[in-house]
């Protein structure tokens, strides 16, 4: 993308060779040049991994950027030949969706209660928080990872939701109450749609933390079969055999792409939510 932008600059400079045009737009050209330089730095490592995952094995050891022979079979190879791979991937999906779901529900309820609710429904919030508090942190199974992860994320999620809910005027909630809507209906049908952007933010923040958590998962689990994909990836040594460099890179691309795609689709809401919840809060 960045390279394309640079060629646009060059070609438009080429069609209008007048030196005056260049002088007038000099600051803009320098500015876009510097920005694109930084964009290139941000994208370069990711592009390198993508290229690595489609190189032939002999090209992988040669470390030139552009391979002499492409090989797209690594993606199928990791599914067929690495026996724990599908299980690790499922572990990741299971742990992440569990964490994101529980954290989001708790954060929404707590944030809503903190800002708008009367004490009546508050017991549920306190109970949920307390339950998640007193769970022991030592776990031996994949399911056991979910609650510690919820614990990690809950404080920040509740704080974000709280500042997002503060943007919803009290009058709206009062009006819903006057019209006969209970607290659940008010939350579900009126307040939550107004807080959509903040919801996207905690969704993505929680997804990223749970999907990639390392320290707890590697300390608390001791069997490859119950670990999440990123932890297995961190422990894998590149080289020959099962974990050849292109195979490793293919696993990496498979693991990292869902987050980037989800973010790209949700970016509009995410930026709005970020401005509402994080910066002002």
């Amino acid at each position: 993308m960045t390279i394309a932008l640079e060629t646009i600059h060059q070609s438009s400079a080429g069609t209008k060779p007048a030196p005056g045009w260049f002088r007038e737009n000099r600051s803009a050209i320098v500015r876009h040049g510097v920005i694109n330089f930084f964009m290139l730095i941000i994208l370069a490592p990711l592009v390198w991994v993508l290229m690595m995952s489609i190189k032939s094995r002999s090209d992988a050891m040669r470390s030139d950027f552009w391979p002499r022979r492409f090989d797209f079979t690594h993606y199928r190879y990791v599914f067929d030949k690495i026996d724990t791979f599908p299980i690790n991937l499922l572990n990741s999906i299971y742990v992440t969706s569990g964490t994101v779901l529980i954290t989001t529900v708790c954060a929404v309820l707590a944030g809503y209660a903190l800002v708008h609710m009367k004490p009546k429904g508050g017991g549920l919030v306190v109970a949920t928080l307390l339950i998640s508090l007193y769970f022991p942190v030592r776990v031996v199974s994949t399911s056991g990872l979910i609650l510690p992860y919820v614990t990690l994320n809950l404080a920040i999620s509740v704080l974000i939701m709280r500042s997002v809910f503060q943007l919803v005027p009290h009058e709206v909630v009062e009006a819903a109450k006057v019209d006969g809507a209970g607290p659940w209906r008010t939350l579900w049908e009126i307040v939550l749609p107004m807080a959509r952007n903040g919801l996207v933010v905690i969704f993505i923040v929680n997804f990223v933390t749970a999907w990639g958590e390392f320290l707890l998962c590697s300390t608390l689990t001791n069997d490859q079969i119950v670990r999440t994909m990123p932890v297995v990836l961190a422990g894998a040594q590149g080289g020959l055999g099962q974990w050849s460099w292109p195979a490793l890179a293919a696993v990496y691309v498979l693991v990292v792409t869902p987050g980037i795609i989800a973010f790209t689709f949700a970016q509009k809401l995410f930026f709005k939510g970020l401005a509402e919840g994080v910066v002002k809060g």
């Binding site: 390392f214 990123p230 990836l233 980037i260």
Partner: peptide
């Protein structure tokens, strides 16, 4: 949006 472990 890349998790920490994957950045490392």
């Amino acid at each position: 949006v890349i998790p920490s472990t994957l950045v490392f």
